[in-house]
Nucleic acid binder design. Structure first.
Length: 854
RNA sequence: GCCCGGGUGGCGAAACCGGUAGACGCGGCGGACUUAAACUCCGCUGUCCCUUCUGGGGCGUGGGGGUUCGAAUCCCUCCCCGGGCACCA
């Protein structure tokens, strides 16, 4: 009988739901395991990436369950956000309606996976019973001094009429829409994530991927050095941060960012016109231009002077846009002899260069002739009190010269040791409708208060135009009263959706709990999350924010009741609320299917028997006579292309300065884009290479899709989809089906053959167990396929005993159950077992059987 | 420029601690079944050379060098690909 996947999968999905097989309930008698996978945004349809991310996470959760853990594996939706508003504008449908429709469709698709989601824990961030508690956390953060109102130069998108976080701006453009972003000064709500910078730098006690830790460390950007106070001739103090206070004696000028408030004050009448012009120009310059590497330094003299606090020298103050207001104090001391940027600036504007480090064993630098800034070890010279002190490449106080300089600054009250971070406080205000309202109100006298009653519900909004948020004009929403009954106006901004997803792992515990963000009794048992799986693209934003949230919640006492409950159950809460997730695993990305090759039209000329191209164009519809060489790209190595033309394979060398045109890739292309275009295609609708999981599930079954996704790639790496390979996964399922359904009758039983099959069985247990724990799904499937092959051989020879055969088949089913839950359950029950295969104990290998025969 | 992760057959990949490179699958080739095709089944499949057809040998994990009895694996160096950060004081 042929395997009817549609019937079997439907049957078991219904049966499991009826039986409540996946309901997770607190049970202090059993060890817990909280498995979490990143919640999807309800964009419309579940795509292959969701399947790729979620099915191994589900398999892992199932393995842990068979190993005796009480497993929680919840699912929900990150449902606020801009796409819903865009849909409202484009299709005249309310964001709520669009979102809830999508959620309904995606729930159905998620069910077709056959995952062990506990749907009674489902949490949806746009549901009032969810965002009430996002608001509650905001209020708690406000009361606890974490949330504050501040003025900032923000990234304002004129297109979207909203402010964006630094993380959402790439190269001066909105990361999502690619629209330009300008700088604007506005009052906004911030979270003081920088208070936690040092704690966030520590990854003690958690097992996170090294690249994620490196990216977060990089992002936080801790630098050790000193704050030094300079005094201007106009009497203002300017504090500058420097990592090299030891080079202060070589500071020959100062530079302020063009936006720095003191620039105005310092500028003398003589230079006023020039400075104002420069500042206007700098303000108009896009972030992209300003960041452009290798750009020649620009700047102007303000006419003002400051006093170098270490030697009393009078040094000129310039303003230049290579100094950024957003880093440090927006002002620097410039030491051109020992900083390459300052050096370039000094040379350009003919400012003096005074070396204060002398490399051991070489001549003293001459400031007039040195060709570039010197950064390296040596001894301090011309540096007064720290003259002669050794200097090396170490950072901060580890470097003797830096330590000596800090000591001198502190003794003489001219500065102090300081630590600076690249990370800024988290700006959470969004001028949008479809988000959680910020629960704050403004009284007539300008004072601020948090909303006395939560939740603040989003009002029904009229038509969406894509302009400013409807909240700003909705009088019914705006007008309210403060705690004393006096009239007040509501905050119209909503919260960054990253806030919603920063604490959802806690709402999952008790999504309907009405008196706190989560039920302390549930939290006491389930927290923290044991394994979190998701994409590496969330390394710095989501994964940093959720760590910050957990630490802030801990400090504000949000976990106190849970800790109390833990103690009453005999579990020590010490350290359990410091980090949200013990271990994190990142999966790779599934790319679009590799195509045969692009058609290229190549122009150029023959040089010494090689064809050198000066123009290469990708055009899939090009005729054979469209150019000197027209054909399919076979291979590319560096600048050499193998091209298959109608009559021959031609080797083409692409000239260094050749023009390359690749459709769909903007900007200047070079020859590397050809390979990129050939092979590495993200799945996207515009490229027409999207593989729809629903169609595959219908044709091959969910189990086959799950097995193929786990088998065909190194999970942490991903790769291009190959539509042909899935047939092999289906053949495997069919073989398993036949072995599970057809009886086995041995012919001439041989003890050796029986033992060999048993050995294979127990070696497979070993291998699969190790691989599944290590998220090595591809080799786990390969091992199971090997056991399948051994079973096929055994059947053909009909020479193993029935016991060995049955042991092998049952083991194969149990080991496969986490990956292919439906077909294994069906076969398990057909083979006469009455309890669900998913409730069985994970097979254990007998080392004496598994041992290789010698 | 800096910081991560990679480079192994035609393709996806495997190789646990330095010990038979290429498991498993896809694709391909040959054969069986079929009127035919698909499905299914059997065999072969890194590469080159020799061969008495039984086998035998050379080469081979991006390039070059090193350590070692032995290197895909360790060290040095260079090249290439992917990702992140980038005038960060």
């Amino acid at each position: 009988m042929k395997y009817d996947h549609q019937k079997v999968e439907k049957h078991w999905q219904d049966q499991w739901e009826t039986d409540g097989v996946y309901r997770s309930v607190v049970d202090w008698e059993r060890p817990k395991y909280y498995a979490l996978t990143m919640l999807p945004y309800p964009s419309g349809d579940l795509h292959m990436g969701h399947w790729y991310a979620m099915t191994p996470s589900d398999a892992r959760a199932r393995v842990m369950r068979m190993k005796g853990f009480n497993v929680l594996f919840p699912m929900g939706f990150d449902a606020f956000g801009l796409p819903a508003e865009n849909a409202a504008v484009q299709r005249n449908v309310h964001p709520a309606e669009w979102t809830w429709d999508n959620i309904e469709r995606m729930r159905r698709q998620l069910r077709s996976m056959g995952a062990m989601f506990d749907w009674e824990r489902e949490a949806i961030s746009c549901d009032p019973e969810y965002y009430e508690w996002t608001e509650w956390l905001f209020r708690r953060f406000f009361e606890g001094g974490i949330a504050y109102r501040g003025e900032a130069i923000v990234n304002w998108s004129p297109t979207l009429q909203t402010v964006l976080a630094n993380e959402q701006v790439i190269d001066g453009k909105d990361e999502r829409t690619g629209q330009p972003v300008i700088q604007k000064r506005m009052e906004q709500w911030f979270f003081a994530i920088t208070k936690y910078a040092d704690e966030l730098l520590s990854f003690d006690g958690i097992e996170w991927p090294e690249p994620v830790k490196a990216m977060q460390t990089n992002w936080i950007g801790r630098s050790e050095g000193a704050d030094v106070i300079f005094t201007t001739e106009t009497g203002d103090e300017i504090t500058v941060f420097t990592t090299r206070p030891d080079t202060l004696w070589g500071a020959t000028f100062m530079v302020l960012a063009p936006e720095h408030p003191l620039v105005d004050e310092l500028t003398t009448d003589e230079y006023r016109t020039e400075v104002d012009a420069y500042r206007t120009e700098a303000a108009g310059r896009s972030e992209l231009e300003r960041m452009e590497a290798d750009r020649e330094k620009t700047g102007v003299f303000t006419g003002g002077y400051a006093i170098n606090p270490v030697n009393g020298e009078r040094i000129p103050v310039w303003t230049a846009d290579y100094v950024l207001l957003s880093y440090g104090s927006g002002a620097i001391m410039a030491v051109p002899a020992h900083d390459q940027r300052d050096f370039e600036f000094a040379r350009r504007f003919d400012l003096s260069v005074v070396p204060v480090i002398q490399p051991v064993g070489s001549d003293r630098f001459d400031g007039k002739t040195m060709p570039e800034a010197y950064v390296g070890p040596g001894r301090m010279v011309g540096s007064g009190p720290i003259d002669g002190v050794a200097t090396n490449d170490a950072k901060g106080r580890e470097n003797p010269s830096v330590a000596a300089a800090i000591d001198w600054l502190e003794e003489n009250d001219r500065g102090a040791e300081a630590i600076n971070y690249r990370m800024r406080d988290w700006l959470i205000s969004r001028q949008r409708y479809w988000g959680g309202p910020i629960p704050m109100l403004f009284r007539d006298d300008g004072t601020i208060e948090s909303e006395p009653t939560l939740p603040v519900l989003l009002p029904e909004a009229p038509a969406f135009t894509g302009g400013p948020s409807p909240l700003t004009t909705d009088e019914g929403f705006l007008a309210t009263t403060d705690s004393g009954g006096e009239p007040a106006r509501r905050e119209t901004d909503t919260m960054d959706t990253f806030m919603c997803s920063s604490w959802y792992q806690y709402r999952y515990l008790s999504p309907h709990f009405g008196t706190a963000p989560f039920d302390p009794e549930e939290a006491a048992y389930w927290l923290p999350v044991d394994t979190y799986t998701g994409g590496a693209e969330h390394a710095t934003m989501h994964l940093l924010y959720t760590r910050f949230f957990t630490k802030a919640m801990r400090d504000l006492g949000v976990f106190d009741d849970a800790a109390q409950a833990m103690r009453s159950h005999g579990r020590d809460p010490e350290g359990l609320f410091d980090e949200p997730m013990i271990s994190v695993r990142n999966q790779g990305q599934i790319l679009g299917e590799e195509r045969d090759g692009d058609r290229l039209v190549i122009a150029g000329e023959w040089v010494d028997g090689r064809f050198v191209a000066n123009c290469v164009r990708v055009d899939d519809h090009a005729q054979d006579d469209a150019g000197p060489i027209v054909g399919e790209l076979l291979r590319r190595t560096e600048r050499t292309l193998q091209v298959k033309t109608v009559d021959d394979d031609v080797t083409v060398e692409v000239a260094e300065d050749a023009e390359v045109e690749v459709p769909g890739i903007d900007g200047i292309n070079d020859v590397t884009q050809l390979r990129h275009h050939l092979e590495v295609q993200r799945m996207s609708k515009s490229k027409g290479n999207v593989v729809n999981p629903d169609e595959l599930v219908e044709r091959y079954g969910a189990d086959t899709v799950r097995i193929y996704l786990m088998f065909a790639f190194d999970w942490e790496k991903g790769g291009p989809w190959d539509s042909r390979g899935i047939a092999g996964a289906r053949r495997f399922v069919d073989d398993v089906w036949r072995m599970g359904t057809a009886g086995y009758e041995p012919d001439a039983v041989s003890d050796d053959a029986s033992l060999a099959l048993r050995r294979s069985t127990h070696q497979t247990i070993d291998k699969v167990d190790r691989d599944m724990v290590a998220f090595k799904w591809n080799t786990a499937v390969a091992a199971l396929m090997t056991l399948r092959n051994d079973l096929l051989d055994a059947r053909r020879a009909a020479n193993v005993g029935v016991d060995a055969w049955n042991e092998a088949v049952d083991t194969l089913l149990m080991l496969l159950a986490p990956m292919a839950p439906h077909v294994t359950e069906e076969l398990w029950q057909q083979r006469g077992h009455t309890e669900s295969i998913h409730l069985q104990a994970w097979p254990e290998s007998d080392p004496s059987v598994a041992a290789d025969q010698t």
